[in-house]
Design a protein around this nucleic acid. Structure first.
Length: 319
DNA sequence: GAGCTCCACCAACGATGAAC
DNA sequence: GTTCATCGTTGGTGGAGCTC
């Protein structure tokens, strides 16, 4: 590929074609005539040695090569636009933007409702999308600008990913109020579940990849013990619902347990062992480090985490 | 099947800028 | 100032899909 032949206007044309799937509409979008876009497409085809788009009826269908370029091209143009934007005082009240977050339902359930309401009061033209953790690789999604921020436990990420710790996420054990086995053993809410009973009872587990073990099983394994995980579900909320209506125990983040117990018939207990509780972190692409709107929304997330008392809860769990 | 519309593509030509 | 290359426009052609 000859990079010298690839000028910025061709990249703009490619982006417009990927958006519009039409030479005419792509031209309208970027202020060129249809023949001009057609000619640019031909130059792109020659430069990239790929058809890029093939005609099917009245549609221009992108080839796999063109599809693969969609994310990187969009991200590159967005970066260039930011670089040439005149510096001006940032005013959240005038910000028009959709931020895309990624994380477990833990966050969409606990963080987003109060967060979105608070942001709406100061930045009415800001909107949010929240994508589930299962959507894919964090580094790739950040690189392609498909997400602005990921809220996740510690991950292996690319070197250009910036991150900051949000809060520790210690585990608590939840069980249905009136759980027969715990009642028979005389274990009251707030007390620690004995290790033998903990290993004996069935467990529900939140698992996005179908794995039947987690941090709790790792900790038990170091003691030469195992538990019986009989139900793996992709969302914390589903785990809480299953526990509330079944015989299961579940080790879940303390913050989630506290909120779930307010709306479901759940009791919160102490775990019989110390389960390592890695700090949840906020991840973003380093190219946004100094971008005012992005920096502002990251600061607002930190403020919300503080307001929700997530940090304080770290000290309340006696596992 | 005819007529219409939409679309990609081609040819001719003009404007512009670099090289000499 | 001339030549040349590049990239834009206008005008036209032909293919595909839709409606009657």
């Amino acid at each position: 590929m000859n990079l010298n032949a690839l000028d910025l206007n061709l990249v703009r044309v490619l982006d417009a074609l990927l958006r519009e799937k039409s030479v005419t509409r792509a031209g309208e979008q970027i202020g060129l005539s249809q023949p001009a876009v057609s000619a640019a497409l031909n130059r792109l085809r020659h430069t990239l040695n790929d058809q890029l788009f093939v005609r099917r009826g009245n549609d221009m269908v992108p080839t796999p090569r063109a599809e693969s370029l969609a994310g990187p091209v969009r991200a590159a143009l967005r970066e260039i636009e930011r670089a040439f934007q005149p510096a001006k005082d940032f005013d959240p009240a005038r910000l028009e933007r959709t931020f895309t977050f990624m994380g477990a339902d833990f966050f969409s359930m606990l963080l987003m409702p109060p967060f979105a309401a608070r942001i709406a009061a100061v930045a009415p033209s800001v909107s949010f999308r929240f994508l589930d953790s299962a959507i894919g690789d964090v580094s790739k999604l950040l690189q392609e600008d498909q997400i602005d921020v990921a809220l996740e436990r510690p991950l292996e990420v690319a070197e250009w990913v910036s991150s900051v710790p949000l809060f520790g996420s210690p585990f608590a054990v939840i069980a249905a109020k009136g759980n027969a086995a715990l009642n028979r053993a005389g274990i009251a809410e707030g007390e620690q579940v004995p290790l033998d009973l903990f290993c004996e009872l069935p467990h529900a587990l939140r698992s996005i990849d179908g794995s039947m073990s987690g941090f709790t099983d790792d900790a038990l394994g170091k003691m030469g013990r195992t538990r019986r995980v009989t139900l793996a579900l992709p969302h914390f909320q589903a785990v809480a619902l299953a526990v509330a209506s079944g015989p299961y125990l579940a080790a879940v983040p303390m913050q989630f347990a506290a909120v779930a117990a307010k709306s479901l018939p759940l009791g919160i207990y102490g775990a019989p062992i110390s389960i390592p509780s890695p700090a949840v972190r906020m991840y973003w692409h380093a190219r946004h480090d100094d971008e005012a709107p992005h920096r502002w929304i990251r600061e607002q997330i930190l403020v919300e985490v503080e307001a929700l008392g997530f940090r304080n809860l770290e000290d309340e769990v006696g596992e």
